[in-house]
Amino acid sequence: MANSGGEDLCLEVAGDDPSCATIVLRGEDHTMGNAVRYMLARRPGVEFAGYSIPHPSEDRLNIRVQTIAGGESAAEAFGGSVKDLAGVADVIAKSFLGALEEFSTSMKQ
């Protein structure tokens, strides 16, 4: 097991295969866990994505990522998915603002 990183995030890669990794996050719960798992699952090149909170009284969120060998590494796929999640939030924000404007103009008429 090779561990790297600070206290609040660590990346566990078994052996020297970069296509499999478990990312351990502290300070996050199902809110991020399930959303990131979903984004990973729908990312091309990701073979498996799952998350678990092993014990409710331990501040620990495990996210397991396995990618297709030869493609993106698991860590890259994870980082990319988290960025995409922020992108999704932004797209929703943009549409919501548009809808608010539309609603206020329709109310004025």
Binding site: G5, G6, L9, E28, M32, V36, V82, K83, A93
Partner: peptide
């Protein structure tokens, strides 16, 4: 509130990516 919730989500993502890149050196 809805906009702020999305902002919180973006901040959380930024924070996770930052921690990931730190741990990837």
């Amino acid at each position: 509130l809805f906009m702020r919730a999305l902002q919180v989500l973006v901040d959380k993502c930024g924070n996770v990516v930052e921690r990931l890149t730190e741990s990837l050196d």
